[in-house]
């Protein structure tokens, strides 16, 4: 089941990744809590990995910045991992 979170860190990462991806339907975001750290795993189609990371990792850095900003609002410390989905 892939219900879209209306708001929060997961929702922010999902909206951004879907805009970047050529295959937005393959974008999946999983959020889990590990002690103080919120781990956000972004799964994208292998063909979209390069787009989501960007030249010099600039897009990945932008995604991390915005994920942290969204986390800040909820008092969460966010780590974003970009992974290859099926």
């Amino acid at each position: 089941m892939s219900t879209t979170a209306a708001r929060g860190v997961r929702a922010v990462v999902e909206v951004l990744a879907k805009a970047l991806a050529d295959r937005p339907d393959d974008v999946r975001v999983v959020e889990s809590q590990h002690k103080q750290v919120t781990l956000v795993e972004l799964y994208v189609s292998p063909q979209d990995i390069a787009k989501v990371i960007g030249r010099q990792g600039r897009t990945a850095a932008a995604l991390r910045t915005l994920a942290s900003t969204a986390g800040e609002k909820e008092g969460k410390q966010v780590t974003l991992e970009i992974r290859e989905g099926r």
């Binding site: 951004l16 805009a19 970047l20 787009k51 960007g54 600039r58 897009t59 850095a61 932008a62 995604l63 910045t65 915005l66 900003t69 800040e72 609002k73």
Partner: peptide, 22 residues
Amino acid sequence: EVLVRHRGEPLKALQHIVDSSY
């Protein structure tokens, strides 16, 4: 205001994502 914190870093990030996407 959340977007202009940290010297506008979130805003710069958003700009970059819009540039890449649109």
